[in-house]
Amino acid sequence: MAKPGDHPEFFRFPAPEGRSRESTIVLDAEGRFWHHGEQVEHGKLAAAMHTWISRHPDDGRYILENGYDWTYFTVEDAPYFVSSLKFSGNDVVLALSDGTEEDWDPSTTRIGERGALYARVKKDARGGPFEARFSRHAQHALADVLVDQGGSPAVKLRDRTVPIGS
């Protein structure tokens, strides 16, 4: 069955009567959603909201869309978060806040404020690419493969060393 989101003009439909496409929803720098200044505490709703993140196709602003409706929201830092890592030979797989997994390319990763790592993710879908901020747990999981390469951080994976942010 087709959803409204399947219609080519879905993002151009006006808001329902008496409503606005603007919202007070905020995704903070720790990956928590807030609405009207209150944290979204319902775990399944917050998890669903992580899967609804996209960009408006016309203006590039962040939106939450579930195929039936959409709204603008505010992203304080990164729209996605790396919750954990899986190591397999020369590969590292990122587990993301929306429940998906992606191979990590350290060369497209940047180092932000206070040493936080940000990876490029979702390159081919939903308005990507996006940034995903490594959680403290995920960043700490790199400790065993992190090396210094001429004063710059790099990742040593079995038979290759890849500079971060090269």
Results as ranks from 00 to 15, higher is better:
residue 141 A to C: 06
residue 120 R to H: 10
residue 120 R to C: 03
residue 114 R to I: 06
residue 85 L to N: 02
residue 95 A to N: 11
residue 95 A to L: 11
residue 145 V to D: 06
residue 122 K to P: 13
residue 140 H to R: 12
residue 124 D to N: 10
residue 76 E to Y: 12
residue 145 V to P: 08
residue 141 A to V: 05
residue 98 D to K: 02
residue 120 R to T: 11
residue 59 D to E: 08
residue 61 R to I: 10
residue 90 N to L: 14
residue 136 R to F: 04
residue 90 N to P: 15
residue 127 G to T: 07
residue 149 Q to F: 07
residue 137 H to T: 10
residue 101 E to G: 11
residue 156 K to A: 08
residue 91 D to I: 15
residue 112 G to C: 11
residue 129 P to N: 01
residue 79 P to W: 15
residue 151 G to Y: 15
residue 118 Y to C: 08
residue 61 R to Y: 07
residue 107 S to R: 15
residue 155 V to M: 11
residue 148 D to I: 09
residue 139 Q to Y: 02
residue 132 A to K: 03
residue 69 D to I: 05
residue 118 Y to D: 05
residue 116 A to T: 09
residue 97 S to H: 07
residue 109 T to Q: 12
residue 117 L to V: 01
residue 129 P to H: 00
residue 148 D to Y: 09
residue 146 L to S: 05
residue 127 G to Y: 01
residue 86 K to P: 08
residue 67 G to E: 07
residue 154 A to E: 02
residue 139 Q to P: 14
residue 93 V to D: 11
residue 131 E to H: 09
residue 106 P to T: 02
residue 128 G to Q: 01
residue 123 K to R: 09
residue 145 V to Y: 14
residue 73 F to S: 08
residue 59 D to G: 12
residue 141 A to G: 09
residue 126 R to K: 08
residue 106 P to Y: 01
residue 88 S to Q: 03
residue 62 Y to K: 04
residue 76 E to W: 09
residue 87 F to A: 01
residue 86 K to I: 13
residue 158 R to Q: 12
residue 136 R to T: 14
residue 156 K to E: 07
residue 87 F to M: 02
residue 129 P to R: 01
residue 62 Y to D: 15
residue 78 A to I: 03
residue 156 K to H: 07
residue 108 T to C: 11
residue 100 T to S: 08
residue 76 E to H: 14
residue 142 L to H: 01
residue 115 G to Y: 06
residue 130 F to P: 09
residue 91 D to E: 14
residue 113 E to G: 15
residue 132 A to C: 08
residue 123 K to L: 13
residue 104 W to P: 00
residue 110 R to G: 14
residue 139 Q to L: 05
residue 78 A to G: 07
residue 143 A to P: 13
residue 138 A to M: 04
residue 84 S to Q: 07
residue 115 G to N: 06
residue 94 L to A: 04
residue 144 D to T: 10
residue 113 E to S: 15
residue 143 A to N: 09
residue 145 V to C: 14
residue 59 D to K: 13
residue 68 Y to F: 14
residue 85 L to I: 04
residue 129 P to S: 02
residue 60 G to Q: 08
residue 87 F to E: 00
residue 81 F to T: 00
residue 65 E to K: 06
residue 63 I to N: 00
residue 71 T to W: 14
residue 69 D to S: 12
residue 128 G to I: 00
residue 73 F to W: 04
residue 129 P to K: 01
residue 59 D to C: 08
residue 80 Y to A: 04
residue 96 L to D: 00
residue 117 L to F: 15
residue 134 F to I: 03
residue 152 S to R: 07
residue 124 D to T: 11
residue 109 T to A: 13
residue 126 R to N: 09
residue 61 R to P: 13
residue 136 R to Q: 08
residue 88 S to G: 01
residue 97 S to Y: 11
residue 76 E to T: 03
residue 149 Q to T: 10
residue 64 L to R: 00
residue 88 S to T: 08
residue 89 G to N: 04
residue 123 K to M: 15
residue 98 D to E: 15
residue 109 T to H: 05
